[in-house]
């Protein structure tokens, strides 16, 4: 059981790192590397300071890579984009590739 949990956690960490890379690449963030993104810090506002067009860019990159689409009428949007970890959780639950 412990081993399984560790595996899940390792997979999750890998996915989170992959998404951090995707954020840095798709938004051309030059001042920060993927490893420097604190997974619990806000992506928008005073954290990474992303704006709404960044969200659109990121959503586009996510749909290309993971094969599912984000929608405005999803009530969880604020929660999904809160931080890297929450975005990774949403992607791991909804990805189709």
């Amino acid at each position: 059981m412990t081993e399984n949990n560790n595996n899940i956690s390792e997979d999750f960490t890998m996915l989170r790192n992959e998404i951090a890379e995707l954020i840095v690449e798709s938004l051309v963030l030059e001042d920060i590397s993927a490893l420097e993104i604190n997974p619990e810090e806000p992506l928008f506002g005073d954290g990474l300071s992303l704006d709404s067009i960044d969200a659109l860019e990121l959503a586009f990159a996510i749909s290309e890579k993971y094969g599912f689409k984000l929608r405005s009428d999803d009530e969880r949007n604020q929660e999904i984009f809160a931080c890297l970890s929450s975005l990774a959780r949403h992607i791991s639950e909804n990805r189709i590739r």
Binding site: E30, D31, G45, G47
Partner: peptide, 20 residues
């Protein structure tokens, strides 16, 4: 940097808050 961004976001749209 976080303090500057927090301050700016209180007054201006996020597009005017630079990443750099």
């Amino acid at each position: 940097i976080a303090s500057i961004r927090r301050h700016l976001l209180r007054h201006v749209d996020s597009v005017f808050v630079p990443k750099r």
